[in-house]
Structure formats: structure tokens, C-alpha cells
């Protein structure tokens, strides 16, 4: 699962900021090597979201001077496999910066 924050300059339509947090399990074998085979995995490193808990993430970024109108998206993607991510929740904000 991926939480992604993007900022798009609405005048140029360019993505000017992008960052993400990932939530997943890492399977390890007895020697501490990452493994994918269910028969190889004997331990996990748990980087998932825990039940009944709220995960708080903070993002702070600056943009170039001259950016006047920006759309910030907060996207939560769910990956059922490594390849296909589905957008399951999204929040959008539009900000205007006054002339310098």
C-alpha cells in the first residue's frame, strides 16, 4: 500500500513535487535474507498498518518562486500484487499564492 502526495502546478500542468510512504511486509528466511516463497519465510518485518491504529504522516515541501496556483493530491493506493495499484482514497487541495 502506498500513500502518495503530489503537487501540480496548475499553470504548467507539471508535477512539481512527489513523495510517498509504503506499507508492506518483508518476509525473511532463517538467515535473515528477504524471500518471497511462502515455504522460505519464517519471520516477517512488519511495516504494515496495524488494526485499529491511525498512522500519521507529515509532508513538508517548498516550490520554486513564481508558482501561483498548485493542486495538492493525497492519494492512497492499494496493491493487490506488486504490479497493479488501485486508487482507493483521495483528498485534493488547491492553493493560490498571491503575486510577489
Amino acid at each position: 500500500m502506498v500513500l502518495e502526495v503530489t503537487a501540480k502546478d496548475l499553470d504548467t500542468e507539471k508535477i512539481i513535487y512527489q513523495d510517498q510512504r509504503q506499507y508492506f511486509e518483508i518476509g525473511l528466511d532463517l538467515d535473515g535474507y528477504m524471500r518471497y516463497g511462502a515455504w522460505q519465510i519464517k519471520e516477517i518485518v512488519d511495516l504494515t498498518l496495524q488494526p485499529l491504529k491511525t498512522q500519521h504522516e507529515r509532508f513538508f515541501f517548498i516550490m520554486e518562486q513564481g508558482v501561483k496556483k498548485v493542486e495538492v493530491s493525497v492519494n492512497l493506493y492499494y496493491y493487490i500484487s506488486g504490479k497493479k495499484g488501485d486508487l482507493i482514497h483521495q483528498k485534493k487541495f488547491v492553493f493560490h499564492y498571491e503575486e510577489d
Binding site: 503537487a7 488494526p51 504522516e57 507529515r58 513538508f60 517548498i62 516550490m63 518562486q65 498548485v70 495538492v72
Partner: peptide, 15 residues
């Protein structure tokens, strides 16, 4: 001064 944004995101696992 440059344009800046602070985002605070909260994901609650209800499962």
C-alpha cells in the same frame, strides 16, 4: 519567501 505546503495525512486501519 518561497511557496510551501505542509500536508498532514492520517490513515486509520479499521480492518
Amino acid at each position: 519567501w518561497v511557496p510551501a505546503v505542509n500536508v498532514e495525512a492520517f490513515i486509520t486501519n479499521k480492518a
